[in-house]
């Protein structure tokens, strides 16, 4: 009986999550639906980034490239060959996975800062290619997706459908990370992050583990690109390949807590509504002010809580629920 009560309390987050998911269908306000879409998209992007960035500690600043590759692959296949975005999404993801594999295979011999700088340069190269290869991508004019609604076209009238789509995407990423953390791959990556030499001396092939992780990371990131393209019906290099995307992916993970499956969730829920809210207040009258506040919050969080806000919140949550469990036990 005691156990049941404890279980009920511990399952609160899931109850809240399910209620939240059900509540989405009741929200009609387009602004909030857009905010939820954005937040969930970033849960997934940051989650994809941290498969290699958080667990292996390989700090990529080029993940926009994979997002853009996903968006452009599915969109071009859709426009020119009428390939359904559902299929294009996985083709794009596979393509991004291959590129991610090749990039990592060549760059993983670089340690620390040099890996970060190489990925930053790689992201810029892809951005420049997308901008200057006009015959393929029509450059900075961008690509307009055919507006033809239907499930097979992954194009929906209501924002609800997109929110559920991106929700499935975000849950898949979190679930994958959660499982990975408890499997061999997760242990290998963490072993590499903590002490490469020790891991290798125990026979762990850390290079292969990192390659696997970065391929998967690129794969998942690219899926986000397709969903975003289908949501906005328009892509251009500056919207799907900006360096700000490469920066925000690790940022969300760090604020939420690096190397934890739910870190990106905390990070995105804390950051994205806040930045949208700040932009709403200051965006028109004080251009740039919202980003200044954003930058300040970032610096303060990093300096005071480098392990992120997620663990702090979790600790607080456990304290509250733990206290309640005790009380129930005492009364029962």
């Amino acid at each position: 009986m005691k156990l049941d009560k404890g279980k009920i309390i511990n399952s609160w987050p899931f109850v809240i999550a399910i209620l939240g998911i059900l509540a989405i269908s009741k929200i009609e306000n387009q602004y909030y639906l857009g905010m939820i879409f954005n937040t969930l998209l970033w849960v997934a992007i940051a989650g994809s980034w941290q498969i290699v960035g958080g667990y292996a500690g390989e700090f990529s600043l080029g993940h926009a490239a994979f997002f853009g590759i996903g968006a452009y692959t599915s969109t071009l296949l859709y426009i020119h060959f009428s390939v359904s975005p559902w299929i294009g999404m996985f083709i794009g993801a596979a393509f991004a996975g291959i590129i991610g594999f090749l990039l990592s295979w060549t760059c993983f011999r670089l340690r620390g800062h040099f890996f970060t700088l190489a990925t930053l340069a790689f992201g810029q190269v892809v951005l420049i290619i997308a901008t200057s290869w006009r015959s393929l991508t029509s450059g900075s004019e961008g690509l307009l997706l055919p507006i033809k609604m239907g499930f097979w076209q992954m194009s929906f009238e209501s924002k609800h459908a997109y929110v559920y789509l991106v929700l499935i995407y975000a849950i898949s990423v979190i679930l994958f990370t959660y499982v990975m953390e408890r499997r061999r791959l997760g242990y290998y990556l963490i072993a590499y992050r903590e002490n490469d030499e020790a891991a290798r001396s125990l026979g762990v092939n850390t290079f292969r583990a990192r390659l696997t992780a970065s391929t998967i990371s690129a794969f998942f990131t690219a899926i986000g690109g397709t969903i975003y393209a289908q949501y906005t019906f328009f892509i251009e290099p500056e919207s799907v390949l900006p360096v700000t995307l490469s920066i925000q992916a690790p940022l969300v993970s760090i604020v939420g807590g690096l190397g934890t499956p739910f870190g990106p969730l905390f990070g995105a829920v804390l950051i994205l509504p806040l930045s949208q809210f700040l932009r709403g207040i200051f965006g028109s009258s004080f251009n740039g002010l919202h980003l200044i506040i954003y930058g300040l919050i970032l610096i303060v969080v990093l300096l005071l809580m480098p392990s992120g806000l997620g663990p702090v919140i979790l600790k607080g949550w456990r304290k509250i629920t733990g206290a309640q469990v005790k009380k129930i036990n005492a009364s029962g």
Binding site: T116, F286, I292, G295, L298, I299, L302, L303
Partner: peptide
């Protein structure tokens, strides 16, 4: 200085944060 004894990503993002702040301060 406060980032020097912390993991490497801290100084990367503190300087990135500073760059975001300075850029937008100029814009503002």
């Amino acid at each position: 200085r406060p980032t020097l004894d912390k993991p490497a990503f801290v100084h990367v993002f503190v300087t990135l944060g500073l760059s975001i702040i300075l850029q937008n301060l100029a814009l503002l």
